[in-house]
C-alpha cells in the first residue's frame, strides 16, 4: 500500500477538499479501477478497495434523489428550522447531501439543482470546530 505523503493541501484530505470548494471547485475522488465517484475524495475506494483514486472536478449540477425537512434540529441549527435537506445525485455520478434553498413543499424527487458555496456565517462559525472555522458551506439551489 502506498499513499505518498498526504498533507492538508491534498484534496484527499478534508482541508484540501474544502480549500478547493472555497474557490468554487467541487473535487471528487474517482476510482481508477472501477469508476466509483467518492465525495469527498479519500485515499481508498469503498466499492472495490482500490487505492488508485484520482481527484477530478465534478459537475455541480444534479437532481434531487431524496429530500425531507428538519423540524427538530440539533441545538446548533435551531434558528434555521424547518429547513430542507436533500440527497442530490450529481451529473458525474456522485451523491452528496446538503441543504436546499427552497421550502419542502416546493421540492420534488428529480428536481434539478445546482451546488453553491458560501463562506460560513457568524452563526455557522460559532458551532464549528477550530479546524472547521473557515470551511465553506454548500447549499443546493433550484435551477
Amino acid at each position: 500500500m502506498t499513499d505518498g505523503d498526504l498533507d492538508a493541501t491534498d484534496p484527499r484530505t478534508l482541508p484540501g477538499f474544502f480549500d478547493a470548494l472555497a474557490d468554487g471547485e467541487l473535487l471528487g475522488g474517482v476510482c481508477a479501477d472501477c469508476g466509483q465517484v467518492l465525495l469527498p475524495p479519500r485515499p481508498a475506494c469503498y466499492a472495490c478497495g482500490s487505492r488508485a483514486v484520482d481527484v477530478e472536478p465534478q459537475s455541480r449540477k444534479g437532481d434531487v434523489f431524496s429530500y425531507t425537512a428538519v423540524h427538530t434540529p440539533p441545538p446548533a441549527f435551531a434558528a434555521d428550522a424547518p429547513y430542507t435537506v436533500a440527497v442530490v445525485e450529481l451529473a458525474d455520478g456522485g451523491r452528496l447531501l446538503g441543504r436546499v434553498a427552497a421550502d419542502y413543499a416546493d421540492v420534488a424527487i428529480g428536481d434539478p439543482v445546482e451546488l453553491t458555496v458560501h463562506e460560513p456565517t457568524a452563526a455557522e462559525r460559532e458551532v464549528a470546530l477550530d479546524y472547521e472555522t473557515d470551511w465553506p458551506v454548500h447549499v443546493f439551489e433550484p435551477r
Partner: peptide, 15 residues
C-alpha cells in the same frame, strides 16, 4: 458534510 448540513436521526431516516 452531513452534520454540517444540520442532519438529524429522524431526517436521515426520512430520506
Amino acid at each position: 458534510i452531513e452534520q454540517r448540513s444540520g442532519i438529524t436521526a429522524p431526517s436521515q431516516y426520512a430520506l
